[in-house]
Every structure is written in C-alpha cells, then in structure tokens.
Amino acid sequence: MRVGVRVPPCDRADRIVETVRRAEQLGFDEVWFPDSQLLWRDVFTTLTAAALGTGQIGLGTAVTNLATRHPAVVASAARSVAELAPGRFTLGLGVGNSSVGPIGLRQTTSAAMREGIAMLRALLAGEEWEFEGKVCSRLRDPQPAIPLHLAASGPKNLRLAGEIADGVILLSGVSPATLAQAAARVREGAAGREEQPPLTVSAFCAVTDDVEAEARRIKPVCASIAQNGGAPFLALAGIDVQVPDKIDGVYPDLVHAEDWKAAVDVCSAWISDEAALRFAREFCLFGTADEIAERLRALHTAGVTGVFLQHVGSYDPPTELIEAVGTTVLPRLKANDR
C-alpha cells in the first residue's frame, strides 16, 4: 500500500519543496496538495517546484476542481506538471468545497463532473473538443497517461467515481463500517469495468501515546463532517452528533479555521470529548506507531491501495507528522514487508 501525506501550499513554493524532499527522504510514496485559491498559494505553481525539486516521490492534487478552473485550464496545467515529473503525477479532482464557497460559487454537480472529466480526457489525449457547441479545439503537446482520480463521499459521486475515474479518493476516513459502505458504492459504479479502480483513503493522523489529548483538537473536523451531510456515516461508527447548518465565529470554515483553538472551543458545544475520542479512534489514525502500522496493514487487507495522512491545521506544513510517521511507522511497515 502506498503511504502519502497531504501538504497544503501554505508557504512559498521553494519552502514547501523542502517539506516534500524530507517526505521523499523518509520513504513516503506520495505527496498530495490541496487547491484553494484564497487559502493557499497556487497548487500548480507548488507542484512545478516540487516536480523540479524531487526525483521519485509521487505528486498529486487532492484536490483541484472544475468550477474555479475551466477543464481546459486544468488540462494544460496538469500536462505541464506531468512533463516535469514523468509517471509521478496524479490529477485528483473534487466538487470544490473551500475553493467555491468563499467566492459564492456552487459545488460541481455530478453531471458537470462527468462532462468535465470527459473533456479532460479528450484534451489530454490530443482529441478535439467542441466547446459550447461553437468551437472545436485541442490541446497541443498532450499527455494522455495522466491518471484522473475523483474524490467522493456521497453515494452518487462514489458511484460516479467507480464508473469513470482511474482511481477514487475516499473521504470517509478509516472506520471499517463507513469504509466498507463507501467501497461498496464504488464497486456498484464500476460493475461494468474489467478492473476495480484503486482506492486511496484520506485520514487525519497523529503518532501519540495520549490519544485523548489529541482527539480534542479534531472536534472541528468531526463537526464539519456532521454539518455537511456526514452524520449518517458518523452514526455507523456509534457517533451521534447534531451540528447546526451554520456556525458563526469560525473563518473561513471549520476544517480550515485560521484560529484552530477558537474553532475547537466553538465546536465543543456540539462535539463532546467522548465523541471526539471515538471519532479519533474510528475515523482517524491516532495512536502509537505500532497501532498505526497495524491499522494501515488492516486497510490494505480490506482492499485499500493507498492512504494519505493529514495533520491538524491548514497554514503550516506537516513537518512533525512527516518526521513521526517517517521515522517510526514507515520502518515498521517495511520491516513487516520483509
């Protein structure tokens, strides 16, 4: 199983590259960069620097979108990065989330995503595309081998991802019950395909002996999932929480709060310490190096082909997480492989 880490483009690209190089040195397989134009530096600028500054680690977007970026623009940007990192780049796509909300746009619908991915594939393959029924154009110097992965959480998009994507990024966390349900929807969508698309799972991670202390810090993440239609997923794992549709006092949103401590305090009104602890144990990879390594092996046994780890916070690189996982968890996984 491939183990990656999420690195937000929260600083100058040349500084972020140092973080990526360290992940490569410690044996991570992939680095995934989120895309949100008001929160971070441009993702494709950062990817370009990372491509030039590394030699073997996989690079990907987790995720960019087809709402703030036209599919033709995404095709050109993806082609440009792939040229610099042959065989190492994966284009991860999603509905928009923190890119669209702050500028008043709506998330991409399933129908628009289907058409957008069809356009991307055609352009990356060098084929002509008829835009708005008026003009036929094509991408010069295409790159048809770029894998297109689709991030999904709801049943409709999970089925869509299984049907049309080269890989699926699951936003359901690592809870066995929710992961099994999400994977089942992907399999439904992929029923007519010769091979099932690979599954990559995102998970917040902390190497710690004190899970209770760390768990309190992820209350905003748990609250955000409940707020955005994920309450049934939480309930499957025995976490019953009710969160209002709108929560004041947190900017720009719960998961990307600029003042994380304040967000934790606000969310404590709906997420108890007990619920946060259960969320950390069920949905996240919190625990000792041995415990995390064992859970990663279990994920692989369950059919997961990749995981990318996230740290709490959006405006600093995951330096501590990379060091902790790279020096304690990855060696245990490699020792087991031998």
Rank of each mutant, 00 (worst) to 15 (best):
I322M: 05
C284E: 10
Y315P: 15
S268C: 02
R217S: 06
E258I: 13
S110H: 11
F308Y: 05
R69V: 08
Q310N: 15
G27M: 01
F279G: 05
I103A: 10
G173D: 03
D265P: 01
E18V: 12
F89H: 06
L39S: 05
R88S: 01
D11L: 13
V100D: 01
T109W: 08
C136H: 15
V17R: 09
E130T: 15
A165N: 14
Q242L: 10
F44I: 13
E132M: 12
A50G: 13
S272L: 07
I169H: 03
D35F: 14
L120W: 14
R41Y: 09
P232T: 13
F131P: 02
V255P: 03
A75L: 00
G189M: 05
P244L: 09
V74Q: 09
T90D: 02
F283N: 09
L52Q: 13
T108N: 12
A257F: 09
L296F: 09
S175W: 04
E214T: 02
A62S: 12
T46F: 07
E323C: 00
A177E: 13
R332N: 02
V5A: 02
P8A: 08
L321P: 05
S99C: 11
L285T: 01
Q196E: 09
K156P: 03
T45R: 10
K134A: 11
R121Q: 04
G58V: 04
L333G: 00
L150A: 00
E212W: 10
A112Y: 10
C10P: 13
G189S: 06
S110T: 08
V264C: 04
I271K: 12
A50Y: 04
P9I: 11
R6L: 15
D245P: 07
A262M: 00
P198K: 09
A72D: 11
A77H: 07
A215P: 10
T19L: 14
S224A: 04
S153H: 15
V186P: 01
V135N: 09
E30Y: 03
V307P: 00
A161T: 08
V135D: 11
E188T: 03
F44A: 10
G313V: 08
T301F: 04
P198Q: 11
A177G: 07
P9Q: 15
P232E: 07
P318K: 11
L124S: 00
R193F: 02
T108S: 11
A72M: 07
S36F: 08
T109G: 13
T319F: 03
L277Y: 05
E320Q: 14
A191T: 03
H311I: 11
P197I: 03
A324C: 03
P244R: 14
S314I: 12
P318A: 11
A182H: 04
E320Y: 07
R185I: 03
F44R: 08
P331H: 05
I169Q: 03
I117K: 03
L158D: 01
V73S: 06
I247S: 00
R69I: 05
G167K: 11
E195I: 05
A289M: 10
L84D: 05
I103Q: 10
I103T: 07
G116S: 04
L234R: 15
